[in-house]
Amino acid sequence: MIRESLSQAADLLFTGGEVWSIILRSLIVSGTAVLLATVVSIPLGLIIGLSRFTGRGPLVAVINTGMALPPVVAGLLVFLLLSRSGPLGSLGLLYTKQAMVVAQLVLAIPLVLGITISAIKNVPQQALLQARSLGANRLQTAMVALREARLMLLVAIIAGMGRVIAEVGAVMMVGGNIRGETQVMTTAIMEEVRKGEFALGLALGMILLVIAFTANGVMARIERQAMGA
């Protein structure tokens, strides 16, 4: 049965338009979420990483805890927020791609932010000291930190993408897994398996594995570069 399913999965990947539309939707939803998370987290991570203020330690601890936030909890929070009786219910976003982006954003921000803070904190003090000593203002010093930490920031983005594209609980809860509308790779795999249709599930699973493998490969390469830099 496995061999038969694999063969069907390969056929679907080469011929099935639906498979690719699910893949594309997944990439768009997760890509948008990670892009937004990056836009929010990197400046915030720079500020937190470079500043000294009261409550910084507890704040970082909260962010780090958020890195392990269960997707279903993130989904539940966003569901409550966007449900008809919730504070943002009037926007009518529940069971849309936008709701899925918001849920994945909630998952991605702590991860990208946490890694960014850690990367900025690990920038050699000598680099910042040297920049300031040569006349860098705060923004210019922050740019030095960003430049020094660039490889780890890339790791943060890839890790964020890896986390959100592979999660199922949050998107299922707020997206509803509507075929042709909000169905993404993970929710499609769940549905197909539930129906006993393993071919599509396997095809999507293979794509997810390829994405995970590529992301890990890129991260490993970046880390090697960072070690050698």
Partner: peptide
Amino acid sequence: RRMAGVFQQPHMF
């Protein structure tokens, strides 16, 4: 910006 410094461990950008 009227000063500059050189430290023990030079950091190369």
